[in-house]
């Protein structure tokens, strides 16, 4: 039998040049976060409406019940959690899933270690917020007390729910890295979009903190 080529010589080449386009998961996350921003806009609008209806003096008197020192510490904790989160992204982008040095050698940390650190800081933030709520309720300021408590618990509470959701997202990303045999592009993207979400929640908290605790 004459030597004939029985297999096609080339792999099926893509019909078109693959265009440069961003990953759709991250585009979708950004668009969704933009809509989340409008959700928080509604909460800010609730706060400002109630404030303009019931008077600045009334809101100030109620805001004086807040423990500003505690929430300042809490703000610092949440803001500082964004740094390990971002270092986790850098580690994910260089495809380093776990640490290559000892646990004390921060420079060699991989994505997992940084994300676990960010998770712990976020969990401390939520615990302190729950503590703040419980001491406010103990002092006789439940959500049903007046306009100010309604606005305060709704705004900070919805933010707290978002942080809790972010903690679950961290867990999911970490579980993905443990479940798969290797660190894939798919996991890198999910790690990056969770960091987008985390930074977003962080920035929203800075706005809430400034409006509720600082401006009063």
């Amino acid at each position: 039998m004459a030597a004939v080529a029985t297999a096609t010589a080339t792999q099926a080449a893509p019909a078109h040049r693959v265009p440069n386009r961003p990953n759709l998961v991250s585009v979708g996350t950004i668009i969704w976060l933009a809509s989340e921003l409008m959700f928080f806009a509604a909460l800010f609008a609730i706060y400002f409406t109630l404030r303009s209806v019931s008077g600045d003096a009334f809101f100030k008197a109620n805001a004086d019940n807040l423990d500003v020192t505690l929430s300042t510490i809490n703000t610092i904790i949440l803001v500082s959690s964004s740094f390990p989160c971002q270092f986790g992204v850098f580690a994910a982008e260089r495809h380093q899933v776990k640490r290559t040095g000892s646990i004390l050698n921060v420079r060699r940390y991989g994505m997992r270690e940084w994300y676990i650190l960010a998770f712990i800081l976020g969990a401390v933030f939520i615990s302190l917020q729950v503590f703040e709520y419980s001491s406010l309720v103990k002092d006789g300021h439940p959500i049903s007390e007046n306009q100010w408590t309604s606005a305060f618990y709704l705004a900070t509470g919805f933010h707290g729910l978002h942080v809790t959701g972010g903690l679950f997202a961290f867990l999911m990303v970490l579980m993905r890295t443990y479940k798969a045999k290797r660190f894939t592009h798919d996991q890198e993207i999910s790690a990056i979009v969770v960091s987008y979400y985390w930074h977003f929640v962080d920035v929203v908290w800075i706005g809430l903190f400034f409006v509720i605790y600082v401006l009063k």
Binding site: N20, I30, L37, F44, A45
Partner: peptide, 28 residues
């Protein structure tokens, strides 16, 4: 203050998407 708060946040909405798209277009 209510409408202003909503408009400020809408500014942030479009600014955030613009920044992301600019940042990504420089990358890819």
């Amino acid at each position: 203050p209510t409408g202003t708060a909503a408009l400020v946040m809408a500014t942030g909405l479009s600014g955030m998407i613009a920044y992301y798209l600019y940042f990504t277009s420089r990358r890819i």
